[in-house]
Design a protein around this nucleic acid. Structure first.
Length: 495
RNA sequence: GGCUUCCUAGCUCAAUGGUAGAGCAGCUGACUCUUAAUCAGUAGGUUCGGGGUUCGAGUCCCCGGGGAGCCA
């Protein structure tokens, strides 16, 4: 028998430890038992045949999350991958000994139960339990049943508790794998091949970002964690893999914010014999199908709530397409903005309330206006096209405007979600573009990539899609941390 | 990196510089269709850590740790 002194009865960990010791003393080790469920919870509920009370037999397993004890019978709920299902445990069905043991179970314990389905007087499909087994004793209590877990630090550090007690977190974090699965099926249906390229790179190229650095002992060499997959995937275009994509972890040694985690997931896709306009069709079809088939807004529309602005984002309406320069001219009210001197641009930016570093290049001053004054206000899906060529060396120069490149940046909810280019495949122009880079957008030059281009790369459209930001939009989350299972935090203080 | 703000029971939250409280969870008991079940009783605190001011600090000040928001 448990011999808990009253001083310890408040200590839930000690109480549960004692219960575990009692079980072991009685010859039961709940960590060695197992269950053989036949159904997940939602499937079991679906298996109920109306009118056939206590006919359909099921076995389910999961964590006890609700206990309503009424003396000689109990209603409890267990949680599994599909959600919750109610169990009805009656003393005169399971027997006196099993019932007495059931009363000693705690919230959080993991059990298996078999029985038959029936409907309660309030209409809830429930398992009438014939037998059950405790398969894992929980030694720590669950968070509060009604308010759940709301301390953000604990939500991130102990995500497993968050998804047990916060149904919204569960739903949000379960949407992400469905999104990724949909993307794979969407692309594979269009003959794209999924490939895997190195995370450890001698040169961190394909984007402008500070990399993480590491060291390979046996090779005696430093390596960088990749900041993009672009240059590797383009090598495969050279190799004749005409439609390739990769969904992979990218690492950037930069700030942490609501929109940035140091490691994040990017999908990059390249299609030979296409261009940035082809990528527009691809991303529009992809995102529209994600909203329609994965998110499935309840009202049947293609509108999603945007958490930050409170507006609805309508994926079903025509997507706006606008040139970068036109947005700048509109924001500055200056039709001749791009003919202005650097001093005039600084003055113009400061008139808009921006702090300008005089060491910046002119395109950086202009881009500060874009990122601070324009981008945050582009809530509806918007293709911003024809960016200044200084912003990216990897795209083709626009034929009738040598100052811009054939690209778009898809902005949704005020965030850059997907950049796409007509990929530069002229090795000489590519080398010149690399060498002409300036300012903070400078990318490292990957000489081996230039060698690959000299072998001939087919014309192609390419695109990146930030999976985390996409999931923010699709789930109506406020922060990237809400769509990443374990977002990056500092080490917790030593206990 | 800077500014602002937060950290109190297992969880969610209270507490003018003046005896640290509540709900849920826990513990003891009642109840064989409950839905945040209900009812009776009961226990539970290094107020993130350290230092200071004060007759007196959860509260004010300083240092450190961690989280969040804004900014570079």
């Amino acid at each position: 028998m448990s011999d808990i002194v009253s001083d310890n009865s408040h200590d839930q960990h000690a109480v549960r430890r004692q219960k575990l010791a009692d079980l072991r003393a009685a010859g039961v080790d709940p960590f060695r038992a197992n269950a053989n469920p036949t159904h997940f919870s939602a499937d079991a509920i679906k298996a109920y045949v109306p009118g056939q009370e206590n006919v359909v037999a099921v076995a389910v397993a999961g964590r006890l999350v609700t206990i309503r004890d009424m003396g000689k019978s109990q209603f409890v709920k267990i949680l599994d991958q599909q959600g919750q299902i109610q169990l009805y445990v009656k003393k005169d069905v399971v027997g006196d000994d099993a019932y007495a043991a059931f009363k000693k179970l705690d919230l959080g314990d993991i059990i298996g139960a078999s029985g038959t389905l029936f409907v309660t007087k309030t209409g809830e499909v429930t398992v009438r339990v014939d037998s059950y087994v405790l398969v894992s004793k929980a030694l720590r209590p669950l968070p509060e049943k009604w308010h759940g877990l709301s301390d953000p630090e604990q939500v991130y550090r102990q995500r497993y508790l968050d998804v047990i007690v916060n149904a919204e977190s569960r739903a949000r974090l379960l949407l992400r794998p469905r999104v990724i699965s949909h993307i794979r099926r969407f692309l594979e249906a269009r003959h794209f091949i999924e490939v895997e390229t190195p995370v450890l790179e001698a040169t961190a190229g394909g984007a402008a970002a500070r990399p993480f650095k590491t060291h390979h002992n046996a090779l005696g060499a430093d390596f960088y964690l990749r900041i993009a997959t672009e240059l590797r995937l383009k090598r495969m275009l050279v190799g004749g893999f005409d439609r390739v994509f990769e969904i992979g972890r990218i690492f950037r040694n930069e700030g942490v914010s609501r929109k940035h985690n140091p490691e994040f997931t990017m999908m990059e896709v390249y299609q030979a014999y296409s261009d940035y306009r082809g990528m527009m069709d691809l991303i529009r079809d992809l995102l529209t199908s994600l909203v329609r088939d994965v998110v499935r807004p309840a009202d049947g529309s293609l509108k999603l709530k945007h958490a930050v602005s409170g507006h609805d984002i309508d994926f079903g309406a025509p997507w706006r397409e606008v040139k970068y320069k036109d947005l700048i001219r509109e924001a500055t009210g200056d039709a001749d903005w791009f003919a202005r001197s650097k001093a005039e641009k600084i003055a113009g930016a400061e008139r808009l309330g921006l702090g300008i570093n005089t060491a910046w290049e002119e395109f950086e001053i202009t881009n500060e206006i874009f990122s601070k004054k324009i981008e945050p206000n582009l809530i509806q899906p918007t293709f911003v096209t024809h960016l200044p060529k200084e912003l990216c060396p990897l795209a083709k120069i626009t034929r009738d405007d040598p100052t811009t490149i054939d690209v778009f940046e898809l902005i949704i909810g005020g965030m850059e979600v997907a950049p796409a280019y007509s990929e530069q495949n002229d090795p000489d122009v590519q080398r010149q573009m690399f060498e002409a880079q300036a300012g903070e957008e400078r990318q490292n030059i990957d000489q081996d990539f230039l060698l690959a281009l000299e072998h001939g790369m087919p014309p192609a459209g390419g695109m990146g899609l930030g999976i985390d930001r996409l999931c923010i939009l699709l789930t109506g989350a406020e922060s990237i941390r809400d769509v990443i299972l374990f977002p990056q935090l500092r080490n917790a203080a030593p206990a």
